[in-house]
Nucleic acid binder design. Structure first.
Lengths: 110, 110
DNA sequence: CCAACCTTCACACAACTGTGGTAAGGTTGT
DNA sequence: ACAACCTTACCACAGTTGTGTGAAGGTTGG
């Protein structure tokens, strides 16, 4: 790598970490060096953007990957969701804002 | 609550925590006591089962709730997924198993 | 009025995540 | 052969998550 790849906004250290978690895994050349294709650079930039703009954790993305792989799990989670305490499927934005606000109050008091 | 509600497999402490995170929020009676309806007991049991059997974290469930609320975020994540380094949409189970195995090796070495 | 609940608030703690650093060593281009 | 890369393997550390415990006080049924 890595100074080249670090133009995606990640440190070399984090590129290795992302590889370890399985989120962005580059090919290796004959001597074991990581070779990030344009494909993967895009992924890295996209991942950085998800975190920066939507404040999504790596765990979260990893879980979505898992959901894609385990349809049974996905079904179980969605079944759970249909009964969830959160505002219903077609709830207004105002409902969600109120819900979010109560949640934050409660978290501060925990 | 709580001994009553604790027949869902959660401790009283955790019921309060789950309420704080917004995952299962019971009604309150006039004196502020938590009143878990059958509805919520089901949710609690379902949540316990998701963790026990599928080894899903509370974070993960919370994130799915988030995705349901923020369609823009959901779209962004799904856009990212379509280019992801993980095995493609129609990959065989063997592909996923191999991928998972490599990931664990890498995490141990990180 | 007293026991047995409930409430909030606070302290504590292990495990994990995300991140940096650094040491010991292989590869490569000049 | 030397600088400038890369590799793996460690230690470290702050912040978060999930969980227990315990104090200080309100509610309720006998």
């Amino acid at each position: 790598m890595s100074q080249a790849a670090a133009q995606t906004g990640w440190s070399p250290r984090m590129l290795r970490y992302l590889e370890a978690t399985g989120l962005v895994v580059p090919e290796r050349n004959a001597s074991g060096y990581r070779c990030y294709a344009e494909h993967e650079l895009e992924l890295l930039r996209g991942l950085a953007e998800l975190r920066r703009r939507h404040d999504v954790e790596l765990d979260d993305v990893a879980f979505v990957v898992r959901l894609r792989r385990e349809p049974e799990l996905r079904a179980a989670v969605e079944r759970w969701l249909t009964g969830a305490t959160v505002p219903a499927e077609g709830a207004s934005e105002a409902d969600w804002i109120a819900w979010e606000q109560r949640k934050h109050e409660r978290l501060l008091a925990a």
